[in-house]
Design a protein around this nucleic acid. Sequence first.
RNA 1: CUUCGGAUGCUAUU
Length: 420
Amino acid sequence: TRIYNFVIGALVKSKCLDLAYLKFEQMSVARCIPDTLTYNLLIHGVCKTGIMDEAFRLLKKMDNVACFPNVFTYTTIIDGLCKARRPDRAVQVLEEMRSKNCVPTEATYRSLIHGVFKNIEGPVAYEFIEKWMERESILNKNICSTVLYCLSKMDMAEEACKFLEKMTNKGYFPSIPTFNVVMACLCKGSKFDYAFKLLGELNTRGQVPEITVYTNLIRGLYNAGKVGDAKRHLNEMLDRCLISDLYTYNISIDCFVKLAMMHRASNLFKEMLGKGHIPNLVTFNTLISGYSKSGDVNKAREYLKLLLQNGLSPDVFTFASMIDGLCRNNLTYEALKCFDEMIQWGVSPNAVTYNSLIHGLCKTGEVSLAFVFYKQMKEKGIPPDVYAFNALILGLCKMGRLDSAQNLCQYMLKCGNRAD
RNA sequence: CUUCGGAUGCUAUU
């Protein structure tokens, strides 16, 4: 039986179901008795191919030959049912297993929850899980974190709030990993009031959030135009999180950059040098991008020089920032030069590089040159995206070539882009 | 050795 199981397992894994079944038939001839594992393997196979009726037939057969299904059996079937979009039946199976004194494991619940969220549309999935949990009167931390994980990953901030509200009232509080994903989701979905509330609750529990929580929050606030709040939390972050390695320094510098606080960014840079940390390419790129964005091309160049002095080679990020900065100052000619330099460095331009350049050229009215680069990027197999199209369309409009602009817009849509 | 999942990790373009 053990040998047969091994073979059947291998066959199922390599998707040779019919051969697996053949071996299964041979077992009785060889006077081997299939055990629970044998059936589990076969059920696993049929579930993967979505033939749930066959899975149930096997389950019934187990009953007939007094071979008892175990957690693995039921979990496999539940997983299969969810993937076949039959969550109601999955819940039935869950109840059936309980009635047979088979205790569901974390895997069982995860199969159900993940399966539902992955295979059913978001709102419907949430409603389903919500109802299911109401019937399950137990409050299980693992179930909660799985649900929150799914909601967060699907960017269902609204639902995540509702769910948290309900569960925290029952005494639940997310673990650190769950807390992090949920916070990321809330910040992305601009649910700041709830994010603050959650953060406050973590504080009252005497815990300090990880730095990534703050960066998500700061970035979200900044994107939502709440610069004041973002600054406040940046200060709090610096106050409470240990900025002690390259990674955390880079994060903090980036926060200052994003909030256009370049003096603070460079102070932090000096501080890290003073403490003996060696800045890396990301550090320099971050600072260069900041100065470029603020229009201070000279400072950006200064840091580029420093980058080289540190034995680092500029990469596609470096050049993108430089080109962007030059274009912002209408130094289109310099930007083109920079583009050439980039190629001399052996760095291949990507979509962002072209977008920046095209945008800059259009801004200074050199639309025909912009189209040269537009063609070049297509030739290089880089599909132009909305950034490129928007710049070109705007450029054409400014020239009064509305017809061409419209045509390009049509073309953009045809290429599978969505107009914004 | 049979079932489901396993976060967060810094930098560029409207």
